[in-house]
Design a protein around this nucleic acid. Structure first.
Ligand code: MN
Ligand code: MN
Ligand code: ZN
Ligand code: ZN
Lengths: 144, 144
DNA sequence: ATTGAAATTGATAAGCTGTCTCAAAATTAT
DNA sequence: ATAATTTTGAGACAGCTTATCAATTTCAAT
């Protein structure tokens, strides 16, 4: 395997270029680690990266993940009291099923629900910009 | 007008009785103020009640609103970084349309969406316990 | 390759929301 | 009234995230 995550790296570089931001060793490091995850907290990335760079600061992780959000590579999702950064570099819009037993997260898309949401909004004179739909319950394994 | 909120007061008393809890002046005061609201933060109640009782502590407000949740009179909803306590004493399940312009909150129920949520869950082997659906956008007034 | 302006980093302080602690006060059963 | 139990209010504390700022790094222009 040669270079991984080339496309995403290009996307980041493009965003940096457009905003007078610089490409740093930390940003590269964090991007490569982030792209291996689906949903992860800043704190978890911090611990995970401590091996690769023990001096990497937590603030840098937060700043960088927020940068990825600006660049369209990540989306911050507030689950409970924590923010999970959703790796959306290779995904379109989706919502979440969350197991309260084992924390498992399953992504889903349902255009029928999306359509009905629009209908509800229109009926009430609203124009939807974003929405959040989270279904909490037990996965098949945790039910037994 | 004689006594308002009698039914809710009875519900609270019943909960208190069942759990060896006491009826205090503060709990009565907070209940009466709370029942006049639809969605309110603890902080907002704190300021609102400062006139009636300047010594009422914020911790007491939080404790009491959480007590109302236990008693089934309120539901804590986490919108953004704040918790709003939803006065559900006179409502069934519902979801929310939220205007990002003026903070207006409109409640709605859509059983078709609820049904589709169940379908999604079943298809993924989940059993739903709760869910949250929030639609963010602009109300008709804020759109112009 | 050097320079130097501008951005970034790491450590830590601060902010924000909400809960915990504990002595004093209030409630309720006796 | 008495006494056991619960509640309150003030402030400390906790969890998560952002702000501050001096030192370091990047990068475009020499
Ligand atoms: Mn996701
Ligand atoms: Mn509501
Ligand atoms: Zn599970
Ligand atoms: Zn509005």
């Amino acid at each position: 395997m040669t270079n991984k995550h080339v496309k995403e790296m290009e996307a980041l570089k493009e965003h940096l270029g457009k905003h007078q931001l610089k490409l740093t060793r930390q940003r590269e490091l964090i991007l490569n680690a982030f792209l291996r995850q689906e949903h992860i907290t800043a704190e978890a990335m911090y611990h995970q990266l401590a091996k690769a760079d023990p001096h990497l600061g937590l603030a840098t992780i937060y700043r960088t993940l927020n940068l990825f959000c600006d660049a369209g590579l990540a989306q911050a999702r507030h689950f409970g009291s924590q923010t999970k950064y959703d790796n959306v570099s290779h995904k379109g819009h989706h919502d979440h099923l969350i197991c309260t037993g084992c924390e498992k997260i399953v992504e889903f898309e349902n255009e029928e629900i999306e359509r009905l949401q629009e209908e509800v909004a229109t009926r009430n004179g609203f124009t939807i910009k974003t929405h959040r739909l989270e279904l909490y319950g037990l996965c098949s394994r945790c039910r037994h």
